[in-house]
Simulated assay, not measured.
Amino acid sequence: MVNDLVNAESRTGRGGHSASVRAWKSALDSVLRRQRITYLAGGAMTVVVYYGLLGLGLLASGGRVPYLLLVVVSHFMTVVTVYPWYRLVVFRVVGQSWVRGCLRFYAIGLVFLGVSLVGLPLLVHFAEMPVMVAQAVIIPFSALASYGINRGWTFRAPADASGPGNISHPAP
């Protein structure tokens, strides 16, 4: 990518301002597309893990455990399971604490857990939807919002970072 930028500038002969700017924009667009693809893969994995855990919990409990408790447990287990993917593959974080990053990731997850804990009873009791269907209605809203929040806060560079290489390195 750096070679492309150097070559683009040297081909223009006059300092290459416009070619250089175009090369930077192209590189940035490519990076964002790759990050979104790995994020979508992570989102799919997150949904499969969460739904699997929640579904198994509902089946295993046979209605003896409140579904909202199963939602909380499934959510916690999912966050712990998928965090490494988001850290290592999606946002390519280096030089930051795993614990601090996981706590931030979980804090964002708690907001979405709260949405489920409020929305599920409304959909289950008032709209009379099954728990899994009601959760399927809620999840897309959480997924759309979480990319921007995780990218801008959970996996952002610290304020005192003095250059590239301190956080998010998009997957090649």
Rank of each mutant, 00 (worst) to 15 (best):
W85R: 06
G165I: 02
L69W: 14
S116A: 12
F112V: 09
V133E: 13
N7S: 11
I139K: 01
T81Y: 02
P84I: 09
R36L: 13
V90K: 08
A127Y: 11
P84N: 07
L69D: 10
Y106I: 05
L122F: 08
R104E: 04
Y106D: 04
G114R: 02
P121G: 07
G165Q: 09
R11E: 13
T154F: 00
S18Y: 08
P84L: 07
A157G: 11
G119W: 03
G152F: 03
Y106V: 06
A107Y: 05
V137S: 02
Y106Q: 00
I139N: 05
Y39M: 05
C102N: 13
L117V: 09
S10L: 15
A161H: 13
F141H: 00
L110F: 08
A127C: 12
L113T: 05
I138F: 03
L113Q: 02
T46V: 09
S97C: 03
G55H: 06
S74P: 11
N3M: 14
R104N: 10
L56H: 07
R22E: 11
M132H: 02
Y86I: 00
V131H: 10
G63S: 07
G52H: 09
V89W: 07
E9D: 08
V49P: 00
V47M: 11
A159V: 08
F155G: 00
G15E: 03
G163A: 13
G63Y: 10
F76E: 14
V90G: 07
G63C: 05
V111P: 05
R104F: 04
G165C: 07
R104M: 04
V131I: 12
R64V: 09
V131A: 06
L123F: 04
A19N: 14
W85E: 01
H125R: 12
S146C: 04
L88E: 12
S116E: 08
G163L: 14
S142Q: 12
H169S: 04
V133P: 08
A157R: 08
G163S: 12
P84G: 09
Y67G: 06
C102F: 14
R36M: 12
S168F: 09
V111I: 15
L28P: 01
L58T: 00
R104P: 05
Y67D: 07
V133W: 13
V71I: 10
L58D: 04
G148M: 01
S74V: 12
V80E: 02
V131G: 07
S146T: 11
S142K: 07
Y39I: 03
R11L: 10
A41K: 09
V31G: 12
A159T: 06
Q135K: 12
I108P: 01
